[in-house]
Design a protein around this nucleic acid. Structure first.
Lengths: 344, 344
DNA sequence: CATGAAAGTGCAAACGTTTTCACATGCTAT
DNA sequence: ATAGCATGTGAAAACGTTTGCACTTTCATG
């Protein structure tokens, strides 16, 4: 027994004894319709279990009520948290979220953006990607569709939300300096990524402000694989004089550093202080708990969605906005004054 | 200066001097078209920068090339990992992924599923949700659209992929039993969720198989908030005789338990063994590293996508498949024989 | 040379909506 | 009484595709 065809507005119209146009107006309470008709049509629609076809609506209304989001890694907790919040906010406004994973590959990014455009997404949220060729980025903004950047510039006419990585790293570094540290090692992912760069800047600024010249040898910013970080940590520990603090820019870095430290039997914070820029389960729950610079993932997602919705609203003034999400330093148990002190 | 209108196939046809129909056939290499025409049309399309409108295609072809995915928490690493893999596989086959967060709320789930249906997604992947009312679940399967379950039954006619939680928990428990443990505490999230239930079953089975009767008092399966687990852990530690091992079903549980243990100064594994079902950064990188039952997130996502694609392929035989993803126990440093021994 | 098949093309109908426009009412104000 | 206006409705035109059908041309076959 075959299932009955999906109901269309034509069925509803017939059942209610009106024309298609009238049925549409009645269902959307738009234009002139008598209350009686509205009632009759609604009843018919309900009885038939009619649901308007979003695709047909999209075609006619030239709006899909879908926004796309492209990030370098869907599974990265930082993005995942942002996605969740953005989805929730958008969904409340009747928009659905189409996601894509660029894997930090420009070609993939371009491909996906084109795909989304063909899919007629109403807007696009773009996470950071290595920022080699700026003109490609601009090409993305074809003026038809609003693009909002996440930790990333996406054309002068477009809005963006940034996490204040620079200030986060700056304050983290200051915190260590205030404790008396001078040789602060920096573990970062590639400095080509914009967030990474800002963090390194913040680190350098805090150092210089305290009259300490940043040392090249203390800065390790290349690949973000955990194995790499692990060996870098080992290498840092063998320096003489050795660094007294490790500033880890990102969860992967923290993990690698912690493993290195542990392997050599360095105790935190007795032998070395550790601070992470970017909070995580690992930092929160490690023993000892790792102090971290944190920011509100949900806020990022919400602001992103908010900015997008604003752009999508019919009475948008078209002004680009740049919003900076603040960071805060959460002191836990992983930082102490350098040198041998209060055992345990 | 207004940007020029988006190019349609009509523009292409005009530029190539053919009818719309012919242009379409040429672009899709479908039906009868001369090679010369194909060349001319393609050239015109390229010159104009024509991109077919996916919405119009969807309407005509009755297929959106979009699949929806509903999970209880987009930001949960377990789901995030699965989503990433599924997205990648689907995207390779020309499908995009629409995501939704049900927050473990049946009403939201229903709402989103309906929404996705209205959006005419070609298929739906559904993550687990509390499984109180089975008939609702079945109602979801309206026969129009394939539904694939993730750790969840979604109607007899539909495929699903399950992680073998039962066996995972079983083996974890056996491992502890083999080490000599008898009083094994179990920390789990709500037993109403299907994965949770299977795990508890596995635990019970292993115990009984070893001639140990599971004790109610050792099983704490309610809410999954970390605070709750923390206090449960404390309560377990105050039992006399106290449990010699903690089996934590899920990352949250592990985190809470670890904090409780730490607060009371119990050392792992000297004073108590800890085992986690479900691997995580925390388990991997904690000191000591926590043994865990792990499974391949990417495989889950891929299989999910594969099953969906199979269902979507025109020559699908319509047979429902159930695929079980195996788990493996990863021994690390958190388990030892019970009683005072080898001081670390 | 007539016939038929094959190849290439254009026309128009769909897909399911929304919206413009014209038309038919019934009412009010001159 | 009649012009005008407000109100409700239906017909039809979009939105941008794909595709069944009919039609012409070409070419080989009898």
């Amino acid at each position: 027994m075959k299932r009955s065809r999906r109901k269309t507005i034509r069925d509803v119209a017939e059942a209610a004894g009106v024309s298609i146009g009238t049925a549409s107006r009645a269902l959307n309470r738009r234009g002139r319709v008598s209350e009686a008709t509205v009632a009759r049509v609604s009843a018919a629609a309900k009885k038939l279990g009619y649901e308007p076809d979003a695709i047909a609506q999209s075609l006619r209304l030239r709006s899909t009520k879908v926004v796309g989001m492209l990030v370098t890694d869907l599974a990265n907790p930082f993005f995942a948290g942002v996605i969740r919040a953005a989805e929730e906010r958008l969904q409340k406004a009747g928009y659905a979220l189409l996601v894509g994973n660029t894997a930090n590959d420009r070609a993939r990014e371009k491909f996906l953006a084109d795909l989304f455009r063909r899919r007629r997404v109403d807007g696009l949220i773009m996470g950071p990607c290595e920022t080699e060729d700026a003109e490609r980025t601009v090409a993305l903004d074809d003026g038809e569709m609003p693009v909002i950047g996440l930790d990333r510039e996406v054309g002068a006419a477009q809005s963006a939300v940034y996490v204040d990585h620079r200030r986060g790293a700056y304050e983290a570094t200051r915190h260590l300096i205030n404790l008396g540290h001078e040789r602060i090692a920096l573990l970062s992912s590639s400095s080509r990524l914009s967030p990474g760069r800002s963090r390194i800047e913040g680190y350098g600024a805090a150092l210089r402000e305290a009259g300490i010249e940043p040392q090249e040898a203390l800065i390790r910013a290349q690949k973000s694989s955990m194995e790499f970080v692990f060996s870098e940590a080992l290498s840092l520990m063998s320096m003489r004089p050795a660094p007294t603090a490790f500033l880890c820019l990102g969860t992967r870095m923290l993990a690698g550093a912690l493993q290195g430290l542990r392997q050599n039997g360095w105790r935190v914070p007795n032998d070395v202080s550790v601070l992470s820029v970017g909070d995580s389960d690992l930092a929160r729950l490690y023993a000892p708990a790792i102090s971290a610079v944190s920011w509100d993932l949900a806020a990022v997602g919400e602001v992103l969605a908010e900015l997008m919705l604003k752009r999508l609203s019919p009475d948008d003034d078209g002004r680009a906005e740049r919003i900076l999400i603040p960071t805060q330093l959460i002191e836990r148990e992983s930082c102490a004054r350098p040198g041998a002190l209060f055992g345990g």
